[in-house]
Amino acid sequence: MSATENGLVTVRVTVNGRAYERAVEPRKALSDFIREDLGLTGTHVACEHGFCGVCNILLDGQTVRSCLMFAVQVDGHAIETVESLASPDGTLSPLQQAFNDHAGLQCGYCTPGMLMTAKEHLDRHPDGGTDEEIREAIAGVLCRCTGYQQIIESIRAAATTGKGA
């Protein structure tokens, strides 16, 4: 991280395995940086105040709300976004396929945050854990369509395929 002449700060970050370097204003949210500066619009922003979890991404392997971090803070770190899940040829990951098969989404707006949060849960509980653990894991992500039951079934299904996230 280094300051430039016009008040911008240079950020070097690895996103989905690829290195990026950009100059940003310190107040630029990480969520806006990912979408606007890197062009990775899979990460959605909804409330932008940390309530909804839709913008959840993985920072160094842990979920964080990307709207509650500034881009300057991720200099030297590694991020994974929803774009990291599917294969380059477009084949869905087992988790994404399970959401598709079990109606784990309707409008799709919360889905990127839900998927990254579910991925973290499955990375830690390859067998899916208990239903209560799944509910606890996604408690911080709001979905206004599904009623959550199908999301829980999707995560359970992804676990039972034995392929994880």
Binding site: G53, Q62, T63, V64, R65, L68, A137, A139, G140, V141
Partner: peptide, 9 residues
């Protein structure tokens, strides 16, 4: 206190 995700930060 919050959720896993907020407790990570």
């Amino acid at each position: 206190a919050g959720f896993h995700t907020t407790r990570h930060r």
